[in-house]
Amino acid sequence: MFINAVFIILFLLGFYALIVKKNLIKMVIGLNLMEAAVFFWVISFSDIGGEVAIHKLNEAAVNFNDPVPQALTLTGIVIGASTAALLLTLIIELNKFTDTIDRDEIEGLNN
């Protein structure tokens, strides 16, 4: 369906950037794009057209969306931000030693 198609396109765009691109920062962007695709899919498929799972005072419960995927996605977003920050830090440090952020120009990795 529509959600699956959007997920596949986003995920493959991220994977393309991760595999094909030479620039290290573009590779990090690709990794984050893959994460965003997964979060989008997890949130979208659990959407049954209800409300966010927050009770209102003095009101009966209406039909809620599933709270568990939303909590899992929150976990994933935080961890994704942490890994992205760590990767960018490593790129900064690499740039200091090699004066490049191109994957092929780094000595020792180029065959």
């Binding site: 966010v52 799972a53 927050i54 009770h55 209102k56 005072l57 809620f64 709270p67 568990v68 939303q70 909590a71 929150l74 976990t75």
Partner: peptide
């Protein structure tokens, strides 16, 4: 009240 916070 917030069930997502309750899960987390």
């Amino acid at each position: 009240l917030n069930l997502i916070t309750a899960v987390l």
